[in-house]
């Protein structure tokens, strides 16, 4: 196993190609759930959890159901989108049920974010990128975790800025989402500074 390569995948997903700030995936929760630090943290952890599981399961779906190793058939083009989104929806539902029974405290903290995750394009994005980049199972899981960490990092930074913005004097027309987008632009600009970190 090549730990160097895994490290590069992780750094690249967290900083260089941050899912929110460079790839524009998961903007809806990034703007919607970033008003308070606590809810941002809850959402972030829920996303990391589901992303990791989804990377694992969709990899298996892709390599054993859609395009099995025997090479007899290849349904990737026709069924990939449908199969992946259904897998994610079922997975989220399953996680919700298990969490409710086994970990009621955690469910109380994260439960309300779980249904939102199905339509978070970052999740479907991770799983599709895993296949597109030809990652093996371990690499897919590492990519899933680090994409989630990158998302959480951006979300937490945004939440802590927006908590302070509440008391700042913002021009009336920029109140709310508009100023959040300007903040996101500045944040994204500073993240472009990471782009020299990895030689492609």
């Amino acid at each position: 196993m090549d730990f160097g390569r895994l490290f590069v995948i992780a750094i690249s997903a967290i900083f260089v190609n941050n899912f929110v700030l460079a790839r524009f995936l998961g903007i809806c929760p990034y703007l919607g759930v970033s008003k308070k630090w606590d809810s941002a943290l809850g959402m972030g952890i829920a996303v990391i959890f589901v992303m990791t599981l989804a990377s694992f399961i969709t990899w298996i779906v892709q390599h054993f159901l859609l395009a099995p190793p025997s090479g007899k058939y290849d349904l990737t083009d026709i069924l990939q989108t449908i199969a992946f989104i259904l897998t994610i929806a079922a997975l989220v539902q399953f996680v919700e049920i298990v969490m409710k029974k086994a970990m009621p405290d955690l469910y109380k903290a994260l439960g309300i974010y779980l249904p939102l995750i199905t339509t978070n394009c970052a999740i479907l994005g991770v799983t599709l990128l895993n296949i597109k980049n030809d990652y093996n199972l371990i690499e897919s899981i590492v990519f899933g975790i680090s994409a989630g960490v990158g998302f959480t990092l951006a979300l937490l930074m945004m939440a802590s800025i927006r908590e302070r913005l509440e008391s700042a004097k913002v021009p009336k027309v920029f109140k709310g989402i508009a100023i959040a987008l300007i903040v996101a632009a500045l944040m994204s600009l500073s993240f472009t500074g990471f782009s020299g970190l990895i030689a492609e």
Binding site: V173, F174, A178, I179, A180, I182, A185
Partner: peptide
Amino acid sequence: SPGGFFTMGVLLAFFN
């Protein structure tokens, strides 16, 4: 990518 956020923010403020 920063330009995307910036343009969207300014246009949104304009429509507000």
